[in-house]
Design a binder for these strands. Sequence first.
DNA 1: ACGGGTTGTGAGAGCGCTCTCATTTTGGGT
DNA 2: ACCCAAAATGAGAGCGCTCTCACAACCCGT
Lengths: 342, 342
Amino acid sequence: MTTGVRNARPPQPTLEMVAAEAGVSRATVSRVVNGSPKVRPEVVVSVTAAIERLNYVPNRAARSLASRQTQSVALVVPEDMTKFFGDPYFAAVVQGITQRLDESDYTLNLLVASSDPRHKTMRYLRAGNVDGALVISHHTGDNFVADLESTMPVVFGGRPTNDSGANNYFVDVDNIAGSMSGVQHLVDIGRHRIGTITGPVDMPAGIDRLTGFRQVLESAGLPTDAVEHADFTASGAAAATRRLLERFPDVDAIFVASDLMATGALGVLAEQGRAVPGDIAVVAFDDSPAATSGPIGMTTVSQPSKEMGFAMADLLLRLLADDETVPHRNIMPTRLILRESA
Amino acid sequence: MTTGVRNARPPQPTLEMVAAEAGVSRATVSRVVNGSPKVRPEVVVSVTAAIERLNYVPNRAARSLASRQTQSVALVVPEDMTKFFGDPYFAAVVQGITQRLDESDYTLNLLVASSDPRHKTMRYLRAGNVDGALVISHHTGDNFVADLESTMPVVFGGRPTNDSGANNYFVDVDNIAGSMSGVQHLVDIGRHRIGTITGPVDMPAGIDRLTGFRQVLESAGLPTDAVEHADFTASGAAAATRRLLERFPDVDAIFVASDLMATGALGVLAEQGRAVPGDIAVVAFDDSPAATSGPIGMTTVSQPSKEMGFAMADLLLRLLADDETVPHRNIMPTRLILRESA
DNA sequence: ACGGGTTGTGAGAGCGCTCTCATTTTGGGT
DNA sequence: ACCCAAAATGAGAGCGCTCTCACAACCCGT
């Protein structure tokens, strides 16, 4: 026990030790560490030197306990690992978030957990590990979020399912308008048997993109029945595409609710010998790297994923800084990107 | 300030409050919370009830400060975000790690940072945020690790570059033997102009897989000059493949040091009209989802990435539990998986 | 009935930091 | 020189928890 691996490490220097080394009080060292302006420059210098000499780093637990802040925020993703890592959309969002956070001195805690977020994750969050939370990929069933919001500031990526007016903060794109622009393009190039592979219908992004699809086809007087649901994964979309092709062998265009899913769809199309865009035109959503990494560049509805991550983090940080002027919602623009697939 | 967003939240209940509610002392509540056996069952019941009633969750900062443990570990990845998210190998490792951690009550902190790990990341780690660290994708230049090791237990994924004998703990596969099995297969199927796309030569995995390549070709009396270096990314490998084809138009087989890179190579091969495996056979390394997600299944050297993650976490946890019997290295097996590409 | 273990519980001292005050020092203004 | 405001510093009380002791309550054997 006393000679154990962990206990064998030399203890880290403390504020107290720095104070002794510099010949000042703890309070003064604390001021220097926190950049308080009311310390004589010469004292700052000597304290800084002492810190340097001892290689001092403030203890986070002590600091959190005393200041009641952790200087870190969580990114909660109620999905399983594979889904999270598999979709480049998440990569982009995380990149945006870290980019904003890097400008601050907050750190990010990634919490990926579908299994039982209500328990381990909630416990972690409520234990005061973070000052605020970002939630992406939020499903209807994830009602743990309500509890979360009573505990700390929360910012959503994508309109939350229980958007109760002005209570939530979120960053999103107009999924309906976005998907409409994509489907409209399909109509414009003369397709008239248009199908869709949707996202999960328990997520606003899934629902809204389907709504956009329907609206365009209805006002164009085209049938809206060629719909297959999938789960934002490539394999799920592949299966859905097979079902779609089975039910509607005559489709000449497919609107797929995400790039990743489109890669799955494209695979099935190739496998079945349907030429893209010749036989079947494909429009996707996201404009992630997945849209350009395959053999055919995808025409896709671009959403600024990275910027959305950045905006989410920015919103949360302002909330944490007690900025009363932050807007509750930040709807960012989409843009149709034309490539080979349509 | 006093009515700010953050401060408006109701304060969390404390141990003290639970003690009052249950009519016992702080110490007793602490014992119940930590599952100490020396509390009368009836007291356990009443304290548990009080905890339930108040919806109490222990404050982590206070607990860490007092116990000098955080119950969390870091996964340090000295790469940039895109590289990390882009490679399914990492996904598998992370999955293995979280799987092991989920069995414990440690939590994971993901630290992905190439830019300046020496600073922000080291500061974070040294601030006592975690009890131990896992390091993957370690490059020669990443000498910050030495400092880390003097602070807390560290387990590496992949042999560390400065493997100074018995000081480090790591989980790895025998990259040399693994790549040898892959290249040998190429020789066995009668290829005699074999090239390779390597990983970064500042990483053991990159170096060792190249070494295996050379050893097989040398003992087969074949030339070992068709070597192009890449960086474990698809695009880097694509560029390297172009260079390789340019320099050695007559190659009839390529050993690529990772599946992800092989997807890049395969793309170039397709683009240049070289049939796989007809004109050029391809053997990769990893056996990640990338090996089977493309049009041609890849023959690849399988390494148990997820199990490696699990083993890393397991090793670290045992280290943290002062288990003196843990082995310093855990070398796991590779296995050649035959698919269409060779 | 009584000493001598157990066993369960409480008191209290920290863990390393922040932050409010009180106190000391400094720097004009006259 | 003197006084007083302003600036710089220090003392000390927590933050919410753990953990070591000391103590109280109970068990057994004799």
